[in-house]
Design a protein around this nucleic acid. Structure first.
Lengths: 214, 214
DNA sequence: ACAGATTACCGATCATCGATCACTTATCAA
DNA sequence: TTGATAAGTGATCGATGATCGGTAATCTGT
């Protein structure tokens, strides 16, 4: 007698798309704690309270769950940057804008890890949507564009004149990603006090973005 | 009749510890190309030309293979740093020392990925030896110590006086790791010309390490 | 030359993994 | 009441990391 069930599916009416959110919430928590490859689809299903095949009614694969979290993390980061990056006339203002990125990563290590630090198939970072990263529609490019525009803004004001703005933006991005990813990946390292470390780091990067000498 | 074999084991006399090296070489190449979780123990065994259980005669687990590669990558990096980091009296000299780290990562992306970028069990970076990263015997701390001493050297000469040397060293390390890991992980991103990007990045970091203002 | 110990290796097998399948149950529209 | 649809399940697939008992080649001591 296969397929017999004694529990009642659909606990409440119109549970429709909420299951999908439950799955994503559980997956985000578990991926952050145990890593993408340390969590099985059965673990996720158990955390949600459904059977394992049920996940495949909402996602085509485990990677697609990670890709959705990846895309959402980028959208959240972009939303924060759009709200937070305003005037960039002083070093403190530039540093504050850069902190938005770093604070996002440190406050959402699960999302940041899923978005930036988990190796996907073939050693590449998992990307939702088109696989061609030169496509500006790929999540993450919008976030980087905000940084790029900020640097271009500074350049138009005659700051950071000696360097190509594009290169400078990439250097600054790398500087921010490096600190966030290391703080997340190596919690056992004897780091300096975090607030001072982050504050000094963003001031360093902001100063480099604004310096007038070559 | 189980266990029957028609090929001859031990092709040449005294092949003893060479198998271990063959396994490590194959694993390094495959991990770099397909990622730690994109390569199975059967793939490694096939590349070496042995059966899969044979790997377990030389390593306790797949993770131990990765851990050995991790430790070797660190030793190689440390050797390069010890040889290359000398006088740090000019900005160019400091930048050249920092380039040793970045060039190592870009020239050995397989090793760098295994050492710094692959998430291990429980989302932590896989580490050979003691799990306590505050232990200085952990691979990687020696490499960082060289950087720390260089920064302390600058500090003793009255450069970078405004900042805590330890914090500065961690910021610089993060800046280097960020660029290397992003260049490796996101090859499809529209990066600026690599040589100019790297040269500008290390000059930026070196300038921060040596600046006299607060 | 021979016997025992050691080295190096293999086929078979295990639990678990991501994924697919046929099937059942609950709900709703006609 | 009936048919369609949404939602979920147990059984099962090939592949994975790891373990087991057993075999063939080599070495050592006599």
């Amino acid at each position: 007698m296969p397929g017999t069930l004694h529990r009642s599916p659909r606990k409440a009416k119109g549970a429709g798309a909420e299951r999908r959110e439950e799955i994503l919430a559980a997956a985000l928590r578990l991926f952050g704690e145990y890593g993408l490859y340390g969590v099985s689809t059965r673990h996720i299903a158990q955390a949600v309270g459904v059977s394992q095949p049920t996940l495949y009614a909402y996602f085509a694969s485990k990677d697609e769950i990670a890709a959705e979290l990846h895309a959402r993390a980028f959208r959240e980061l972009e939303a924060r940057l759009k709200l937070g990056v305003r005037d960039v006339d002083t070093l403190e203002a530039v540093a504050a804008s850069l902190r938005i990125y770093i604070d996002f990563g440190l406050e959402n290590p699960d999302a940041y890890r899923v978005a930036f630090m988990i190796e996907g198939p073939h050693g590449r970072v998992a990307v939702a949507g088109p696989a061609d990263e030169s496509d500006v529609s790929v999540p993450g490019h919008t976030a980087f564009d905000i940084l790029r525009r900020m640097i271009a803004d500074l350049h138009a004001r005659g700051l950071g004149a000696g360097d190509d703005p594009e290169r400078m933006a990439q250097s600054i991005w790398a500087g921010m990603h490096g600190l966030v990813s290391l703080l997340i990946a190596r919690p056992g390292f004897p780091w300096a006090e975090r607030e001072a470390l982050v504050a000094g780091h963003v001031r360093m990067l902001a100063a480099m973005a604004m310096r007038r000498d070559g």
